[in-house]
Every structure is written in structure tokens, then in C-alpha cells.
């Protein structure tokens, strides 16, 4: 029996969740990460609470919460949407810390020079600070992306037929656990490794520029 076609089909869903969740995570990482370094407490405090909650609780339980609990207050989500939102927000907590620490690692003199040239805070962040911080963000963001791809296996528990789910059902129907799980791992690796390479490529390109 050929296991690969169903596994590839499962991988497709895994990649879909990865793509959606990473988009959510990237956007929220910047929103929360920038809020963490603003001079304004009203933004810093909520951002800090958000980060600590999503970083400090289990990703699996967050997924369950989005799928099973939100309907109770009238927010009905498909498994796909719930999975993408939950993983996206969970990973944005880590991403926000990456954004914050990379920005804080930029030399303080850059802020001072921006101020001396009359840049507003937002303009300094956009034109001066973030372009320099991006270089530092890239490696940890690459790590998170690979982590996220592997964490998508969690959404199998709300019934999405992604890679791990497909593998488990194949094992159940055929009993070939050694072969199937080995194949599942191989497919995860085949998806994750190019991601690592891609990130490293971007890293190299950014270091070359200046």
C-alpha cells in the first residue's frame, strides 16, 4: 500500500495552518513587540499581560479554548480558523519578545541621533530602528517558524486532518506503525529543512547589504 499520497495531503493542511498561523503571529508579534517598547504605559502593560498569558499557558489548551469555549460566547470558529488563530496568537507571544529584544539591542545612539534630527517616535522606529533590528530578528524568527510547523500537529486534536492526524489514522487502519511514523517524521523534516535554508539565505543577504 502506498502511504505517501495521504501523507502529502495531510502535509498540505499542516502547511496551510503554518502559513495562516505564521501570518497572524508575525503581525501580532510586531504589534505586541512594539507596544512593549513604547514610552506609553497604557500600551506596555496590556502587551505585557498578553505576552505572559499566551507564553505561560499550554498551546494545546489554547486551541481547545478557541474551538470549544468561544462558541459558548457566540464565537463559532471552524477547526481551521480556531487552529490558526490559537497557534498564531501563541507564537506571537514568543515573536513579540523577539521583536522587543531585537529592538532593544539596537544601539541607544541610534534613538538619540533620530531625536536630534527631529524624527518622531514612529518615524525613528520605522526608518531607523526596525531596519537594523530585522537582522537580529531573522534567526530567532526562523526558529519559531520551524517550531510552528511542528506544533501544527496539535490541531489534529480538534479534528483537522493534517500530517500527524493522517499518520495516526493510517497506523490505525494498517497497523504499520514503524513505517508510517518514520514516514511522517521524514515528511515533517522534508518540509522544515527547506524553511531553515530559506531563513539562512535571507540572513546572509541581509548581512551583505551593509
Amino acid at each position: 500500500m502506498n502511504f505517501l499520497p495521504p501523507l502529502i495531503q495531510g502535509l498540505y493542511n499542516s502547511l496551510l495552518v503554518t502559513l495562516g498561523a505564521s501570518a497572524v503571529a508575525l503581525a501580532l508579534s510586531f504589534v505586541a513587540g512594539l507596544a512593549l517598547i513604547t514610552p506609553w504605559r497604557v500600551l506596555r502593560v496590556p502587551a505585557r499581560i498578553y505576552v505572559e498569558i499566551f507564553r505561560g499557558t499550554s498551546a494545546l489548551v489554547q486551541i481547545f479554548y478557541f474551538f470549544y469555549v468561544l462558541p459558548l460566547i457566540g464565537i463559532e470558529l471552524t477547526p481551521m480558523t480556531a487552529g490558526i488563530m490559537a497557534l498564531g496568537m501563541c507564537f506571537s507571544a514568543y515573536g513579540a519578545e523577539v521583536v522587543r529584544s531585537s529592538i532593544q539591542a539596537v544601539d541607544k545612539g541610534q534613538w538619540e541621533a533620530s531625536h536630534a534630527l527631529s524624527f518622531s517616535w514612529g518615524m525613528a522606529v520605522r526608518r531607523v530602528i526596525i531596519p537594523q533590528a530585522l537582522r537580529r530578528m531573522l534567526p530567532p524568527f526562523g526558529n519559531l517558524l520551524v517550531e510552528l510547523l511542528k506544533a501544527t500537529s496539535l490541531v489534529s486534536l480538534i479534528g483537522i486532518t493534517e500530517l500527524a492526524f493522517t499518520g495516526s489514522s493510517l497506523v490505525r487502519s494498517t497497523g504499520e506503525n514503524v513505517l508510517v511514523y518514520l514516514l511522517v517524521m521524514a515528511v515533517y523534516f522534508a518540509a522544515a529543512y527547506p524553511l531553515s535554508l530559506l531563513v539562512r539565505h535571507f540572513e546572509r543577504r541581509m548581512t551583505k547589504a551593509w
Partner: peptide, 27 residues
């Protein structure tokens, strides 16, 4: 007021020209 710093604090990701034009253009 303009200021010149001990450690220059040029923007490393911009060319010399853009270091000089950025503020006049944007601000």
C-alpha cells in the same frame, strides 16, 4: 537644535547621502 555625537551615530543601514537627506525629506 542639531547635535554631533562622540560616537557619530550614523545610520549604518543607509548610505552617506541618505543619512543626510533622510531627515530633511521625511521630517
Amino acid at each position: 537644535i542639531g547635535m554631533v555625537f562622540q560616537h557619530f551615530n550614523l545610520f549604518p543601514h543607509m548610505t552617506v547621502l541618505r543619512n543626510i537627506t533622510e531627515a530633511p525629506v521625511r521630517v
